[in-house]
Design a protein around this nucleic acid. Structure first.
Length: 850
RNA sequence: GCGAAAGUGGCGGAAUUGGCAGACGCACCAGACUUAGGAUCUGGCGGAGCAAUCCAUGGGGGUUCGAGUCCCCCCUUUCGCACCA
């Protein structure tokens, strides 16, 4: 009885003991200096928002990163593995409203709580480099970057329509609008408002951000595709049509190109298929196109129809089914002149034309565009074919949208040319005559960063009645966020209601002036935090360029795929800005990116409303941190979704208990054999050591690329099962102690990345004083790992019939002979002809029998 | 609609190059030790059949000596994009 109690694996006593010892050693997970002589390895997990509690997604994310970091430490790398807090943002203000707690206090106490959870989980972070984005030591550099970008023309201000979430009472970036609803309030439609906003000119880097994706070979293809789509580069041409009303044309007012320019009202269209312009049979305008309002000014009927269409578009956007609504159009009664041939075409307003893409106007070529074709059919507009498909084209039916063809029926200048040749030619003409130009359009918009919120980085600008907008001088940074302010639900920027903050003097002329009261989007904070880790306490610069140059790029970045566009595009943008400021030399922030799958419960995302949230604290309390972490790695490959099953965690806990008891039983005697070597193991010792070296090889290989930690854990279980099944021999002392020692020693090392607490405990049992993290990762002896005999499957006509035991390196002849000699094979082939024998040495034998 | 990933026992998953389908774990069943068991140990565990055997990786075809794996068609699920001119 007493003995049994003693043998019980109790993480609740083992783990806190080690946690305390580790806390006493701040160098435990500290990165070393650049001249330490080791190769560097920079691995981070995406920093969390300090909501107050870790969720299982965090646990999974950090278990993956921590296992990798630990493995790299053991491999002898100088590892940088830091953690921080993305700690500005709306929830702090909401909490302030709800509980009357100041945002700063609420945030900092959440951070303290979550840090405790991380420490309890045994995650190995270099806390000396902790970055907390809501502290002035950090956000002053957001302001500093803002000013540098302002100087370079990468920050500008414009009156613009912005996405407004009535729930958040603030502006959202395009990236924060999901299905035309707020990304935090998925059922709240986003409204449009006109406000003066600050923008980062990310489009200045649009080409580079897009082209750079090709080089990101260590990033998931999925993320690369999403970024390509998001940037959405489209190369085409803009040309001006000229609007007339019908009377002007019939009255002969139109005499030629020159006159058209004088008289017409310009309608600029964007097209990727300027080669089809002679097939344009109408011009289509978005209902919100500015010229539409002028057409409708004296036409009440048109005005009503347009307003209805705008309403319809808006609703479709909100419902997320813009893209599938029935095409509808309104004829304006006006006509436009094709600038190339002076052809008169009707101007329509159409519900499938978007005001905020391109110029909000298109030329409609029904013969060569699906949508235009559909529209023309419905409204009986002419369809003029101007491209003749090449011979081998599969379908020649209209609409013919491929570029594989020759221009016909157009103009002597382009007839007979290929589409691409014609495009080039027509662009030249437009440029020479001044009615158009080649143009590249992006879906990516400039990054609106103004937020009418309190808990964010104050924008370092001052509005002086005399001097206008004046940047805050560097020596007045940081512009501190006032701490004691009343958070209310009134609209507008909370800072505008804080006179001490609002009122200041102009840095230029000294007159009374007012501060900018908007704060920055929190995505600013996370765009460069990982650079700060390299020199987290620098009071004079965002970071020392030398430190960043040593550590960057990040070798492995790990996080959720939900950040594939927002955070990861902004980070790539910011990296380029910093490069152009001369702070860093890398173009991209991270060489490799890994996106882990979600943690589910009963097949669906954990959420309070579903009541299926599993708390990491409960798991750790019941089964320990090691079991919780190891289960997170064991239950599924890291890139796939994982369904959390508590019974599974219990299983891991039982497994760890088995390991613990084996060590308790056999370590004391084995320690005596420490340092001795077993030269030629035989029997059970050979069998166990062979399995040990196979396991080592498998796990080492997986860390190098595949990352199937679920099978790594399974392999360790197989090894332990094999040790367990040799229990009788071990108990009788039939296995040499040197072999037992090697088994336990290496097993401990293999466990170290996955179960750090138990590994530390076993390490101590084995008489080791130092930290297991500093012990070298075990090498697999290939000679020992190799099987000398193998059981090969014998098939007859592809069906498994028997197994034959042969030497592992047996040649084809030997294997064939063994297979033919096999009893089962003989009885199956009796009286039949063996037509063919296929031998794959080391793999299989197949007899073709007739 | 377009694109990507996935579909394997009761469940999570394994099979890295075309070569023993179901490793490992959970659940379940039986046994041992027990006053007791949410402890531990031993054994069993895809389906059908007493058995020899047969059937089985979403469905249907194909390539191959041999297919979960390669090719074609279809179905389902998840994700991304979606009138972007």
């Amino acid at each position: 009885m007493a003995e049994e109690t003693e043998l019980r694996y109790e993480p609740a006593s083992i783990e806190p003991k080690w946690q305390q010892r580790w806390a006493a050693d701040p160098t435990m997970y500290a990165a070393e200096s650049a001249d330490c002589g080791k190769p560097k390895y920079y691995v981070i997990e995406m920093l969390p928002y300090p909501s107050g509690k870790l969720h299982m997604g965090h646990v999974r994310n950090y278990s993956i990163g921590d296992a990798l970091a630990r493995h790299m430490w053991m491999k002898g790398y100088n590892v940088l593995h830091p953690m921080g807090w993305d700690s500005f943002g709306l929830p702090a203000e909401n909490a302030a409203l709800k509980n009357n707690t100041p945002p700063r206090e609420w945030t900092l106490s959440n951070i303290a709580a979550m840090k405790k959870q991380m420490e309890r989980l045994g995650l190995g972070y270099d806390w000396e480099r902790e970055v907390t984005t809501c502290l002035p030591e950090y956000y002053r550099w957001n302001q500093w970057f803002f000013l540098r970008m302002y100087e370079k023309g990468l920050v500008y201000r414009k009156q613009s329509k912005v996405n407004w979430c009535p729930q958040c009472a603030t502006v959202l970036a395009n990236e924060q609008v999901v299905n035309d609803c707020c990304w935090r309030h998925e059922t709240t439609p986003v409204e449009q408002r006109n406000l003066e906003q600050w923008f980062y000119r990310i489009t200045a880097y649009a080409d580079e951000l897009l082209d750079g994706i090709d080089a990101l070979e260590g990033w998931p293809e999925k993320v690369r595709t999403m970024q390509r789509n998001w940037i959405g580069r489209s190369k085409g041409t803009e040309v001006d049509f000229f609007a007339y009303n019908d009377e002007a044309i019939t009255a002969g007012a139109l005499k030629g190109n020159g006159e058209a320019e004088q008289r017409g009202e310009k309608i600029r269209v964007f097209t990727t298929r300027i080669d089809t312009i002679f097939g344009a049979t109408s011009v289509q305008l978005a209902p919100e196109h500015p010229i539409v309002a002028r057409f409708a000014a004296n036409d009440a009927k048109l005005k009503a129809a347009v307003e209805a269409m705008i309403e319809q578009q808006k609703k479709a956007k909100e419902d997320g089914d813009i893209g599938s609504i029935e095409k509808e159009g309104i004829f304006t009664g006006h006509y436009a002149i094709n600038p190339y041939n002076q052809t008169k075409v009707p101007i329509w307003i159409a519900n499938y034309i978007l005001a905020d893409y391109g110029t909000g106007a298109i030329m409609s070529v029904p013969a060569h565009d699906e949508r235009d074709f559909e529209f023309a059919k419905k409204y009986d507009l002419p369809i003029v074919q101007v491209i003749e498909p090449v011979q081998n084209e599969d379908t020649t039916e209209l609409p013919f949208c491929s570029k594989e063809g020759k221009i016909v029926n157009s103009d002597p200048l382009v007839d007979g040319l290929t589409c691409l040749e014609a495009q080039k030619k027509l662009q030249e003409i437009a440029r020479d005559k001044g009615f158009g130009e080649a143009k590249t359009t992006f879906r990516l918009k400039d990054w609106g960063v103004s937020r009418q919120r309190y808990w964010g980085t104050p924008i370092p600008m001052i509005n002086c009645p005399a001097c206008g907008l004046v940047p805050v001088p560097d020596d007045q940074l940081p512009v501190l966020l006032p701490e004691q302010i009343a958070i209310t639900q009134q609209g507008g920027s909370p800072l505008s209601r804080v006179p001490e903050f609002l009122n200041t003097t102009c840095p230029k002329c000294g007159a009374a002036a007012k501060r900018e009261t908007d704060t920055m989007d929190t995505f600013v904070d996370s765009s460069w935090y990982f650079y700060r880790y390299t020199d987290a306490k620098n009071p004079a610069q965002p970071f020392d360029p030398k430190a960043a140059q040593y550590w960057f790029p990040i070798d492995q970045y790990i996080g959720g795929v939900e950040h594939a566009i927002l955070h990861l595009i902004y980070s790539r943008f910011w990296t380029r800005v910093m490069r152009d400021l001369g702070l860093i030399v890398n173009d991209e922030p991270a060489t490799r990116l890994f996106t882990q799958g979600m943690v589910l419960k009963d097949g669906s995302k954990m959420s309070k409303s579903k009541g299926n949230v599993v708390s990491p604290d409960d798991m750790v309390a019941s089964y320990g941190a090691d079991a919780t972490r190891m289960y997170a790695l064991f239950a599924a490959p890291p890139d796939r979704d994982l369904d959390w099953q508590e019974d599974g965690v219990a299983g891991i806990s039982r497994f760890l208990g088995r390991v613990y008891r084996i060590a308790l039983k056999y370590a004391p005697a084995a320690v005596a054999a420490k340092g001795t070597r077993l030269d030629k193991p035989t029997g059970t010792a050979l069998k166990l050591l062979r399995k040990l070296h196979q396991t080592t090889a498998k796990i080492t290989l997986d860390f190098e690329g595949r990352w199937h930690f679920n099978t790594c854990v399974a392999a360790i279980m197989e090894l332990v099962n094999e040790i367990q099944s040799a229990d009788a021999e071990l108990a009788k002392g039939e296995v040499p102690q040197a072999a037992v020692y090697e088994l336990l020693h290496t097993l401990t090392l293999l466990l170290a990345p996955f179960a750090p607490y138990l590994a530390a405990e076993l390490w101590e049992m084995l008489g080791e004083k130092g930290n297991v993290l500093r012990a070298p990762w075990p090498a697999s002896n290939a000679e020992l790992a190799k099987e000398n005999e193998k059981e090969l499957p014998v098939q007859i006509n592809g069906k498994l019939v028997s197994l034959v035991r042969v030497a592992a390196d047996a040649d084809a002849k030997t294997i064939e002979a063994a297979a033919l000699a096999d009893e089962k094979v003989q009885s199956r082939t009796a009286g039949k002809t063996v037509a063919k024998v296929i031998v794959v040495p080391g793999r299989a034998v197949n007899l073709v029998v007739k």
